[in-house]
Nucleic acid binder design. Structure first.
Length: 207
DNA sequence: TACATGATGCCCT
DNA sequence: GGGCATCATGTAG
């Protein structure tokens, strides 16, 4: 593991989710409470705007489930979907304003063996590497993320066992498309991907 | 208390 | 390419 993964400051997330989405691409997600650190680069995210975004969980106001979105920025909002899958979101915007980003795909950098174990698959070749962290449900499983353990966790502190950091990589080229898997406000161009990256969850037309 | 539904992934064809 | 598992949450009654 490279030295000094520096966590992003809370102010980074205290902004419009669209700005955060664009700038968080190329940063790394770090998981520490394992035998070995798990590290993967963020290559695909979506922005959810809050009150004015019909597709956002926060659109209909604060509930027990989405309370984290209404709290301070830089915290993990984990929810369970389709009876099988967890998804990792990061709260954005200042306290009480419910923006967020959804992390949709990662490029594994370190700890692939353990990710494979968590996913319940074997790594036969480079092809299977994509199966580790491509898609919101998959990456959550590969990082051992559950609502019980990780919901509300501070992602801006290296003391946290789950956080987002800058590893010094140069900013990538960003492409923008429509969001995936939603029915409301489905045409808005709020999905941000690293252009040409092989680990994004699905090829889509540019918006 | 009951019901409809979803920011998905897997397996079968 | 399409159907389906599977359940927490929110909303209605």
């Amino acid at each position: 593991m490279k030295p000094a993964f520096k966590p992003l400051p809370r102010e980074f997330f205290s902004r419009d989710p669209r700005t955060v989405s664009r700038e968080v691409l190329g940063k790394v997600l770090v998981r520490k409470n394992r035998r070995n650190p798990l590290v993967a680069r963020i290559v695909e995210v979506e922005a959810y705007l809050g009150a004015d975004d019909a597709a956002a969980h926060a659109a209909s106001g604060r509930t027990a489930r989405n309370a984290v979105l209404f709290g301070p920025p830089g915290h993990a909002y984990i929810y369970f979907i389709y009876g099988n899958h967890y998804c990792l979101n990061v709260s954005c915007m200042p306290d009480r304003i419910p923006g967020c980003i959804l992390v949709r795909a990662l490029e594994p950098l370190e700890g692939m063996d353990e990710m494979a174990t968590l996913r319940g698959i074997t790594l036969d070749g480079t092809k299977n590497l994509k199966l580790l962290t491509r898609g919101p449900g998959r990456l959550a499983e590969a990082f051992g993320i559950t609502r019980e353990q990780d919901n509300g966790k501070d992602l801006t502190s290296a003391k946290s066992d789950l956080y987002i950091a800058d590893d010094g990589a140069p900013p990538p080229e960003v492409a923008i498309t429509k969001r995936i898997g939603i029915t409301k406000s489905a045409d808005l161009p709020l999905r941000y991907i690293i252009a040409g990256n092989n680990f994004v969850s699905a090829p889509r037309k540019l918006a």
